[in-house]
Every structure is written in C-alpha cells, then in structure tokens.
Amino acid sequence: MNIDSIKNGYVIDHITAGQAMNIYHFLNLDAMDCPIAIIKNASSKRMGKKDIIKIDIETDINLDILGFIDKDLTINVIKNGERIKKYNPELPATVKNIIKCKNPRCITSTEQELDHIFKLTDKKNNVYRCLYCEAKAGK
C-alpha cells in the first residue's frame, strides 16, 4: 500500500490500533476540506500494530485534545515536506464537549445546553472527572 508523503500538515503516528477513527471524530476531521489519510493496523516494531493519520493542511489545527485520547501517540509537524517538530501530546487540563458524562444522575443528563467539561484530576493515572458530578470519564 502506498500513501503519498505530505507537504504541509501533520502525521499522527503510534496511535493505538483501532483508535484512528475515534481521533478522526474527536478532531472533527470529517468537516475539513483537505486530503486526509487514515492507515489502520500498520505494522510497528514497538507496538505490533498501530494506526496513523496524515492530514495535508496549510493552516494550524488544535491537537491539544490528543493527549486526552492517547498520550502515547506521536505528533509530527510537517512544513515544506520536512518534519520540523515531533512530540508527544500533553494531557490537557480540561476537555470540553469531546465526551459526554455517562452518569445518569449528572445534571448534564437532563440539561442539554450545558457544556460537557472534564477536568484532569490525576495526571499520573490519566484520570479525568466531570466538572459537575465528578464521575470518572469513560473514553
């Protein structure tokens, strides 16, 4: 299989196999009018299998949320065909309207206009809790 390298944009590598489509939705990539390649189950020495997403785009996009989804993935920033930056995403302090609180007793379950906000409460164990009811986030 041959996927062209990109000139400008991002290569999100080392995605846990099976997570690529989740990331695609979380980043709202379906709303973007640019070439996007999703590679699933690529072979990886370190991970066995991994997913990769390539986004060919001239403008910057906010990838902060990726730390919440999979902090072990790698983000490569490409400019003029060269990789200018490679990093692992940090855990964002809060995530807003990415996931919904699943606690049926939470106020967000009945009041639809409320933002679904989760706070990072345990960095070591990657634990996020609902701002309203403190239920643990289920990803």
């Binding site: 606690n103 106020i107 967000t108 009945t110 009041e111 309203y132 009811c133």
Partner: peptide
C-alpha cells in the same frame, strides 16, 4: 437541594 448531581454548581 436537587436530585441531579452538579445542579447547585450550575
């Protein structure tokens, strides 16, 4: 007092 958790916070 509210049956929904987080209501007083809202």
């Amino acid at each position: 007092r509210h049956p929904k958790e987080g209501a007083p916070f809202v």
